[in-house]
Design a protein around this nucleic acid. Sequence first.
DNA 1: ATTGTGGCCTGCCCGC
DNA 2: TGCGGGCAGGCCACAA
Length: 259
Amino acid sequence: MPEMLEVETYRRLAEAALHRTIVEVDAPDPWFLKGGATADVVVGAVLGRRFVEARRRGKLLLLDLADGPTLGIRFGMTGVLEVDGAPGEELVYSSRRRDPAWVRFGVGFSDGGALVVRDARRLGGVELEPDEERLGVDAAAVSRRQLSDLLVGSRAPLKARLMDQDRMAGLGNLLTDELLWRAGIDPARPAGELSPTEVRRLHANLVRTLAVLGERGGSHTGDLQASRERGGRCPKDGAELLRRTIGGRTTYSCPLHQR
DNA sequence: ATTGTGGCCTGCCCGC
DNA sequence: TGCGGGCAGGCCACAA
């Protein structure tokens, strides 16, 4: 999906949709409704109300309805948010096409505008009252101590642990590869085996990576990104990058400086 | 409980 | 041009 940086962009975009009365709900795809919701239930919850707050936790966008439930939106890998026809982000792995069939959910406002979710692959979804607390602390707000605590005692690969949304929410495949490449730590290392020095380095690089890539415009703007392909070379030292599957995801790392 | 695997669903790109 | 295979920034259910 869009990782947390993209969802944060969506969140800011969604602020333009606040305080506008919803007069129309488009939920054409039952598959896209999660948590047992049906089109009727969503219509009943949303119609006639207004969004009053746009929040984010990890990759989950939360839109609070006045005197109503919270609408949660997940974007899967290819979901895009649009408000009044303007897309929030161009996703690297998502088509630039705007096929009307890809609209999986939308609400129309009394002033004629609309908030729309497009998702070609249908891996995202919309849910009423999502369980926010199941998600771990947002990666943009994690303290060094919290980071240390969520790694300690784990023998899962570091990368898998960092992407475990129940422990820390927000990091996806690209951000995690970039982060570990910057921090100079092997993604396959057991999470609990990092030294205090390495945890400190990891945290500093997390803060910096989110800041820099956020500034540049998204998860795909990392220094490693251009080399994330078969045969790609490390931008730091020129070594051929390792391509492995870690935590179920394609992982690129430098065999020289990531130890 | 933790960790690993497969599957979901669809579009695109590459090579033949 | 057509077709099959592989791949994709996420998440969930399930198995060991």
